[in-house]
Design a binder for these strands. Structure first.
Lengths: 209, 209
DNA sequence: CCTACACTGGACTGATCGGTACAACCCGTG
DNA sequence: CACGGGTTGTACCGATCAGTCCAGTGTAGG
C-alpha cells in the first residue's frame, strides 16, 4: 500500500507510475503464457530486468499485480460501455457498438484479457469483491440494452439474462484467437458477429410494434 | 507407467479402475474451485482420503491427473458429435443437435469442463499435442456443418471458420453459470441458443436456393 | 495357516515458493 | 564535495511444492 494517495503526481511520481505500468504489462504477458500460479517471482524479476527488492518497490505483492491487470481490463471495458451509452441510438445500434468496443479491448489487450478470464478466481477478499461488482455492472449494461430492445419492439421476446450470456460468450471467447498482427482485426470480427446476433434476436417483421 | 497394458481387466483391475475414476472426479472439483497449480498434493490426498503413497498408486503424476480430466471431457464431447453425425438431418438440425449435446456435457461435468477450459495450457509435451488434436477435430466438425449449410443454401454466405468461433464461444462460455441443480437445465438453454444462432445465419427467404 | 502382493500412511527430499531485511548505490540538491 | 532519499541487488527466511521411499497392513489364493 502506497504511503499516501494524496498529492498529485510530481515528475518523479510520474516516472514511478510509468515504470509500474510497464511491469504490469510485462507480467501480464508471462501470466497469460504460463498461468498466474505457475509464474514465479524470479521469472517476473528476470522478465522485468529487476531484482526482487526493486520489483517489490513497485508492486507490494504478487496478487496486487494480478489485481492491477484486472483493473486495466475492466477500466477499458467500462469506459467503452460509457462511450456507447453517451453515443445513444436504438438498442440494435447500442448492442453493435458494445460489441465493437468489447472486441477492440480484447484485440488490444490480449494478454490482460487472457489473465482476466483465467485467473480471476485467484483474487481474494476485498479485491475479489470489487472485481465481481465491476464485472457484474458490465453484464447488466448488456442485459439493459436487450431489455430495452424487447420493450421497444426491436427484438423479439427473448430472455434478457440468458441472451446476454449468449452475447457475452460469443464475444469474450474471442480471447483465444483474436490477437494483434493477426489476419483478422477487431472490426473484421465485430461486423459479422453483430449481423449474426441482431438477426438472431430481431422481431419478426410482421409484428413490428 | 503401468507395467503392462496387456491382460484384459480382471475383477481387481476393475476395482482399481473405479477407484481411479473416483479420484479423477474428486480432483476435478478441487482444480475447478482453486486452480490446478494452486491445489497441492496434500489437498488432493485429503479430499480423496488417501496418503501420498496410495494416491500415487493410482495416478503416476499430478499432470496425468489433469490429462485424465481433459480426456473425460473430450471423450464425452466427441461421442456426442458422433451421435449427431449418425443421426443425420439438415445442417440446421445438425447444428442444433450439436449444441444440445455440447451443453449437455457442460451441464453434466461442470468441474471437468472448467478445468478443461482453464488449465489446458498446463499440459505439456505429448499430452498437450494429443489434446490439441482432439479439440481441433471437434471444432472442425462444427465448421463442416456450417460449410455444408452454406453450400446447401440453408445458411447465408457466412465465413465458416469465424462463425464456428462465434458458435463455440456462445456455447462453451456457459461453463461459468450452467450447473446441475440450478434454475436452468441444458435443454432450457439449448433451444433459445439454437433459435438465436440459426435465425442469425439462415439464408434470406427470398433467395432460398 | 502361510505366503505373496496389492495397497496404504507418512516421513523424507531437494527445489522452489512468495516475501523480507538490509547494505549499497545512484543522483539531484545544497 | 557532502548529503539524503529514491532505487536497487542479494542473502536469506519459513513454508510448501511435487514426488520418492519404505515399512508396514489387509486380504486373497494355496
Amino acid at each position: 500500500m502506497p504511503r499516501a494517495a494524496a498529492k498529485d503526481g510530481t515528475r518523479r511520481n510520474a516516472k514511478w507510475e510509468a515504470r509500474r505500468a510497464a511491469i504490469v504489462d510485462t507480467s501480464a504477458r508471462l501470466f497469460a503464457a504460463q498461468g498466474y500460479h505457475a509464474t514465479g517471482l524470479t521469472e517476473l524479476c528476470d522478465a522485468n530486468d529487476l531484482g526482487k527488492g526493486a520489483l517489490y518497490h513497485y508492486i507490494g505483492s504478487k496478487e496486487e499485480l494480478l489485481a492491477a491487470i484486472h483493473d486495466r481490463v475492466m477500466d477499458e471495458v467500462l469506459q467503452g460501455a460509457d462511450r456507447v451509452a453517451e453515443a445513444g441510438g436504438t438498442p440494435p445500434e447500442q448492442l453493435a457498438m458494445l460489441g465493437a468496443e468489447l472486441l477492440d479491448v480484447i484485440h488490444r489487450y490480449p494478454d490482460h484479457v487472457w489473465v482476466f478470464l483465467h485467473e480471476f478466481p485467484a483474487l481474494t477478499g476485498e479485491r475479489a469483491a470489487q472485481f465481481r461488482t465491476r464485472r457484474r455492472a458490465y453484464e447488466q449494461r448488456v442485459e439493459a440494452v436487450l431489455r430495452a430492445g424487447v420493450e421497444a419492439g426491436d427484438f423479439r421476446d427473448i430472455d434478457p439474462w440468458l441472451t446476454a450470456r449468449a452475447w457475452l460468450g460469443m464475444h469474450n471467447y474471442t480471447y483465444l484467437w483474436l490477437k494483434p498482427g493477426q489476419r483478422l482485426s477487431a472490426r473484421d470480427v465485430a461486423q459479422p458477429f453483430a449481423d449474426i446476433f441482431l438477426k438472431g434476436i430481431e422481431a419478426s417483421p410482421s409484428r413490428t410494434r
